[in-house]
Design a protein around this nucleic acid. Structure first.
Length: 211
DNA sequence: CATATGATCCGCT
DNA sequence: GCGGATCATATGA
């Protein structure tokens, strides 16, 4: 395994631990021709066991089977008839817990991202789960890919200076789990949808997290 | 089979 | 800000 790459043990924890720890790390998409598209992770959401908002809540189905597999793999799902969203499987086998990668700050391969997205503004390339997936060319064929031993998708360790904010997850009505995490003040964080309980209330601050 | 339901994005106002 | 686009999946008839 490459030295910069996050190891299996990083993912083999509760999604609520993995999620904030992923902020600031670099998501790498490696293409067969040797080029790369990379983005710094700036926003994530945790989906835990016993969590009604989680795809895994009602048990395993063919669609969400990857979520119940080993940690460190990618769970990709298709939604709203047009968007793919990318998750990192966490916890232990059979647990069904993951972190949704919601937004990134484009680093390498920005022109390719623009081409795939059909949009110019760098702020609109990866600011949203569907946008991010499209920008780095993640789709159904990546479901199950191994972030630790695979050769197409992984996460590299990087330093982070910003504070971490947390609040309600986007599109989740339940208000007892503030499991959306972002880099405070980072302009690439998605606006998200103004959910019913608007996170107007001061977002809580998470003390620094290290794996 | 038929239908309800989204962890959303975009264009237009 | 609003609403349309657009379809896989799960569930119930």
């Amino acid at each position: 395994m490459k030295p910069l790459r996050l190891p299996r043990s990083f993912y083999a924890r509760a999604a609520t631990e993995v999620a904030p720890a992923l902020l600031g790390q670099v998501l790498v998409r490696a293409f067969p021709d040797g080029t790369r598209a990379t983005a710094r992770i700036v926003e994530v959401e945790a989906y835990g066991p016993g969590d009604p908002a989680s795809h895994a809540f009602r048990g395993m189905t063919p669609r969400n089977a990857t979520m119940f597999g080993p940690p460190g793999h990618v769970y990709v799902y298709f939604t709203y008839g047009m968007h793919f969203c990318m998750n990192a499987v966490c916890g232990r086998v059979g647990e069904g817990t993951a972190v949704l990668v919601r937004a990134g700050e484009p680093l390498e391969g920005v022109e390719g991202m623009r081409a795939r997205r059909g949009r110019e503004p760098i702020l609109e390339l990866c600011s949203g789960p569907g946008r991010l997936a499209q920008a780095i060319a993640v789709d159904r064929s990546d479901d199950g890919a191994d972030l630790v031993d695979g050769d197409s998708l992984w996460v590299e360790r990087a330093s982070r200076s910003e504070a971490i904010g947390s609040g309600m997850r986007v599109g989740v009505r339940e208000t007892t789990r503030p499991w959306r995490y972002w880099l405070e003040g980072n302009p690439f964080v998605s606006r998200g949808r103004p959910g019913p309980p608007t996170p107007k209330a001061r977002p809580s601050l998470v003390s620094s997290v290290t794996p």
